[in-house]
Every structure is written in C-alpha cells, then in structure tokens.
Amino acid sequence: MIEITGLHKSFGKNHVLKGVELSLVPPGLIAILGPNGSGKTTLIKSILGMVIPDRGEIEVDGASIKKAWEYRRQISYLPQIARFPENIRVRELIAMVKDLRGETEMDVSLISYFGLQPFLDKKLGNLSGGTRQKVNLVLCFMYDCPIVILDEPTAGLDPVSLVRLKKLIKTKREEGKLILITTHVMDLVEELAEEVVYLLEGNIHFRGTVAELKEKYQGRNVEESIAALLQKDGPFSLGAVASNGHAKVPETLLEN
C-alpha cells in the first residue's frame, strides 16, 4: 500500500509536483498518465526515494520512507531509460544485482521468456535499445515483490516481447500485486489498466476507472478521452483548436 500526502517537489524554479495526494491499495493495475513534464517520473522516483520531496509524506505499508531503504525490498522497479554500466556483460550485471539484492531463480526463466540467451555474454554498451529494455525487464521481474513500478515498459520492444510483457503484467496482477505503469501508449492503458491517475501541472487532475474516464470526457477510447481532457483543461485548451477536436496545423508550417 502506498499513501502519498501533500507531496511537493521543485527543480530550481520548475515546480513539478504541487501537493499530490494519492492512495494506492493493492491489488490493482494503475496507469499514471500525463503530458510530458507533468511529473510522472518525479512522482515514481519519489516513491522509490531517488528524488527527495520538498514537502509532504510518502508511506509504503504504513511506514514513512524518509531515510528508509528496507522498504525497497517490496518494490520491483523498471526505470524509464535503461542506463547500465557500459563495460560489463549482461550475465555479470544480473549476477551483480543478485549478489546485492539476494538470490533468485526467476532470472533463468525470464531470460528465455524474453529470448535473451544469445546476448548474455555481450557487453551492455553494445546492445540495442530494445535488447537493453529486455535486460531491464529481467532485472525488474526477477524478484517477486508486492509492488511493481514500470516506467515506460514498452519502449523499444518488438511485437513478440510486447505480447509477452503484457501477459507477464497480467499474471502479476492476478497474483494480487499493486502495479503502477506510466506510458504514452494508450492501447496499453486500454488493455491493462483498471484505474487511471492523470497528472496535469503537478496535480492529480483525474482519477477513476477507464470507463469513468471515457464517460467523463466522451471519448470512444482512452486516447480520445485523454485528448478531450487535454483540450478542455490542459495546455492545449488555448490556441487554435477546431471544434472537431483536432488542432489546425499552424499556417506558418504550411507555407513551405
């Protein structure tokens, strides 16, 4: 269970989170959405203790995370950009995480699940973005934690891995875990999410089920509903927006 109250965070003059209140109770699969720069990653990193809030409180399983670290045992985290030390091999990286975090046997099945065997002895610096993301996924899912946080999990994945990832996420949900996903792929939200938390300008603008979102903003699918939301309340509400919901291309762009 994650309980966030009055969370504020600024980076210099940029006030990213302005008093976020959020309570997340397992089980559930919650999509955290929002336009670029709305604070999704900051929120997630605050939960992980990588970003230190200016004000506000975050509790995981009833205990404040301030200066705590043991609670991270409860969390599997998939970082947004898979950045790894360049000079070590995939096998070494997995062994290192196991050494630091504890023994697990799930890595073996996950490696074959995502087809990573041919890459085990390659250096991480030489891997493609998609392959690196698969390594990222293995490191994230090889521990069986009650809370799973996925920041843009589909980035760079091929269709086969994408299907498998979705299946894996669904299994984790059925096991009764609390799963948070941020993504820009609305089909993924449509397919997986039970609830949507929409961040806008540092606050939670909408929270509800996918059906409620569609109903409130009169969209046929999540994508249209979000577009309607943004045009009604968000950064696109001012400016050249035609009545049919599609922005006109500015004339200055059409001249050439």
Partner: peptide
Amino acid sequence: NSREFTELLLSQPIKR
C-alpha cells in the same frame, strides 16, 4: 562515469 551504476543501485534496497 559510474552514474548509471549508481542509479541502478539507488533503486535497490541499499542504503544511500
């Protein structure tokens, strides 16, 4: 140069 390594460690259950 070891920022990536550090970021990886920070998300693990290890004291800062």
